[in-house]
Amino acid sequence: MAYNTRAFTIQVSTDGTAWTTAVTVTANTDGVTTHAIAATTARYVRLTATTPTQGVDGATRIYELEVNGT
């Protein structure tokens, strides 16, 4: 699917200032992706799209970001 986000990172932080990269994706071709990360302490999560789509469209489409923890 040409509209799927091609490249992105997911980062975590305890304070919203210092960020640690938990996931780096550079060549996504999936419509839905799941990324399990090692247990970590974090209060904030951010997703940064670095390549918006697999085609030439410049729009990034993120329909859902779900974070689960205990």
Rank of each mutant, 00 (worst) to 15 (best):
G16V: 07
T5M: 05
A49W: 12
V56S: 13
G69C: 06
T50K: 03
G58Y: 09
A7M: 15
V23Q: 01
T20F: 11
G16F: 06
V32P: 03
I37V: 15
T48P: 05
R43C: 09
H35P: 02
T48D: 07
T70Q: 05
T34P: 02
A22C: 09
T53P: 11
T70C: 02
D30G: 10
A18N: 12
Y44P: 04
A36P: 05
S13A: 05
A18D: 10
T48F: 08
A18P: 08
T5Y: 03
V32H: 06
T51L: 10
D15W: 07
V32L: 11
V67T: 13
I37N: 04
A42N: 06
I10M: 02
T70H: 04
T24E: 12
S13P: 00
H35A: 03
G55C: 01
A49S: 15
I62W: 04
D30T: 08
W19Q: 03
W19Y: 07
V56K: 08
L65A: 07
V32Y: 06
A2T: 15
N28P: 01
T70S: 08
V23H: 02
A7L: 15
V45L: 03
Y63D: 01
T21R: 08
T51P: 02
T70L: 06
A27S: 12
T24C: 09
T24Q: 12
L47H: 06
T20A: 15
I62G: 00
E64C: 04
A42T: 05
T40N: 14
T14L: 09
A36W: 07
A18G: 10
A2C: 12
A7C: 15
D15M: 07
T48R: 09
V32C: 04
A59D: 15
N68E: 08
N28H: 07
Y44I: 04
P52C: 09
T26N: 09
D15V: 08
T33K: 07
G16C: 07
I10Y: 01
P52H: 10
T34S: 11
A49D: 14
G69K: 05
W19E: 00
V12A: 03
V56N: 12
M1D: 10
T51F: 02
T29N: 09
Q11R: 08
W19D: 04
T60L: 03
T29E: 08
Y3N: 11
T5E: 02
V32G: 02
Q54N: 12
R61S: 09
I37Y: 00
L47G: 06
A59Y: 15
T53R: 13
A59N: 14
I10N: 00
T53G: 15
